[in-house]
């Protein structure tokens, strides 16, 4: 993380109210190109609302968003996607019955013209898909392999590779590791590292401190709709992060009874 670089996205004092419920009460965050910024917080801390604001699903009640230094208003997710903010959701935009290459180009199919007719350019799609997957360390049996046969981690990787291929500058990953096994998690974390090295800003949402510590450059903890501060890598221990996430005291008591296994 280079301090001379300007942040690619800045969220300033974002507030979001749903009727009488205050989901976000002034959250600020900035993300730099090439960094992996981990957003931590327990369930209900406001992580999802916050990233939905960032990706254009929600409009903030108060607060400002600056993208590449300019104030931005995202009216819907399309605006955010067009600007270069891609979100990989917990529930993936992948269709198990379709092949990897058909999924990879879903909605952005490459087209080959034959006279006045336009055809799906399968050769191009297959080549690109195999290439991108190989870059991410996944060897497919073939581009026509169905997504349904991939593991959860591989599916996450396909989704990430797809976002990167289509020009994402900011990649928001919503709990990509929450449902994965140890090896698959390691694969996804390795993918995050590869993406970061390409100069893409990664916002990694998780409630698993160990996963965050493995790849994060900076850590922001949310609790009850507020930022509890941002820490640099190396300035904070996993235990401190864990405590912040849980809001302090309760966990200390819990940890006693569980013998420090949380």
């Amino acid at each position: 993380m280079n301090p001379e670089k300007a942040p690619i996205i800045q969220m300033k004092n974002i507030e979001k109210h749903f009727g009488s419920v205050i989901a976000l009460a002034g959250v600020s965050l900035e993300v730099f190109p090439g960094e992996c910024h981990c957003l931590l917080g327990d369930n209900g801390a406001g992580k999802s609302t916050f990233i939905k604001t960032m990706s254009g699903v929600h409009q903030p009640t108060r607060g400002e968003i600056f993208f590449e230094g300019k104030p931005m208003q995202f009216h819907d997710p399309r605006d955010a996607i067009a600007a270069g903010i891609a979100t990989v959701h917990q529930h993936l935009a992948m269709i198990p019955l379709m092949s990897v290459s058909r999924n990879f180009f879903m909605g952005n199919e490459p087209v080959k013209k034959v006279g006045p007719l336009k055809f799906f350019d399968h050769d191009y799609a297959n080549t690109v898909t195999m290439d991108e997957m190989r870059k991410m360390g996944i060897n497919l049996r073939g581009p026509d392999q169905a997504v349904g046969t991939l593991s959860g981690g591989e599916r996450q990787t396909v989704a990430i590779a797809r976002a990167v291929h289509f020009g994402a500058k900011v990649l928001i990953l919503d709990e990509p590791t929450s449902a994965l096994g140890v090896r698959q998690t390691a694969n996804v974390l390795a993918t995050i590292d590869k993406v970061r090295k390409q100069g893409i800003a990664v916002v990694f949402i998780t409630h698993n401190v160990r996963h965050a510590m493995a790849v994060g450059d900076r850590f922001t903890v949310l609790n009850r709709g507020q930022t509890l501060g941002t820490a640099q890598r190396g300035q904070i221990t996993p235990e401190e992060l864990q405590d912040m996430m849980a809001g302090g005291q309760e966990l200390v008591a819990l940890e006693g009874s569980l013998g420090g296994t949380v």
């Binding site: 935009a93 336009k118 055809f119």
Partner: peptide, 24 residues
């Protein structure tokens, strides 16, 4: 099998929500 629209047909039936998220 050979057009962009064909891919959209598969996607719409495979998982409409995922297809919509991808701009279909």
């Amino acid at each position: 099998t050979r057009t962009q629209f064909g891919n959209w047909i598969f996607a719409s039936g495979g998982d409409p929500e995922a297809a919509r998220n991808s701009g279909v």
